[in-house]
Amino acid sequence: MSDLERRYLRLVRIFYPAGYRNARGTEIVGTYLALSSPDRGWPSVADVTDVAGGGLRQRLRAIGATGIGPGVRLAATLALLTATALAGGWAMLELNAWTTAWFGFEQHGTSVSLGLGVWAAWLLAAVVHVVAPGRWTRLAIGLALVLTVAVVPLAAVVDRSRPPLFVLLAQVCLGFVALGVPGQPPVWLRLLPVAGAAAALPVAATFARNGGDVLLGYYGWPAGQVLPGAGMALFLVTLLVGVGLAARNDLRGAWALLVLLCPIGMLWLHPLAEELAVSMYGGGPNADWTTLATAAIIAAVAAAIVMSAALMVRRRLAFTHAAVERCTACGSLTSDSAKR
């Protein structure tokens, strides 16, 4: 066995579920080897990505989550629109002269906060979506995701301001869903994230101008207002699109809504944490780290339970349907089902 074959087998072992790799592993590796040049010693980056993608698809298939691709793509488009609109708004607030009180004595010239770099990465993803949708857009979203996560330890190391965790967490959830953006969307869909970011600028400017002293609480007050608003808008738009599609017997919108439940929950984190604070501590709705973390866990678990239940129901119904549609004698598809 060559080193290359051993490396491909290791990749398949890492990414594919056990049962599938026992049945198909050597066949898949054989195909990679047949496609590779004789002098190659290591799998290419594209092959590693392909093995990872194939393994993920198999794992989703194992839990009955295949066939919801169009719903995921719709959810991804809406998630990217929301993420870039929020990034546009936050960038505006970071740069705006009216919000300098956010940073007080911490402000260093025009370099206001590490958050600005994060939001710039998201805006770059919106631009890449216009000029190079598909793989390049996913790479740009991946980069923005990495920066959104990396800003937390980076801010601690360099001792600079950064957006609060509940703002970053919502952005990360939206970003993960946005990774499923379609490869070749029509032009108007390609422009949507840039349009969303542009539309957010005047809204953010209005917030900044009217914010006054309340903006002292770095992101706190606008984030507490804007994120639930964005969550509600995302929910309503997905619902409306879903109802419109359902009228044509197309349930993409329903799956999109299920996929977006977690990001929507994260956008509602602050009001949820405030409610928790009232019930846990009594007194005013003062969210703290504990209530925010608890609210995040509740939102994530609730979204996972709803999605799992929907997949279970779908798998059960599909199984029943398949059982009815197959010939009782030989197990083959009946002529009626074969026509579809």
Binding site: R24, E27, I28, T31, Y32, L35, A46, D47, D50, V51, A52, G53, G54, G55, R57, Q58
Partner: peptide, 8 residues
């Protein structure tokens, strides 16, 4: 097509 995509 790449193998991961093909076999999926």
């Amino acid at each position: 097509l790449r193998p991961g995509t093909l076999y999926g």
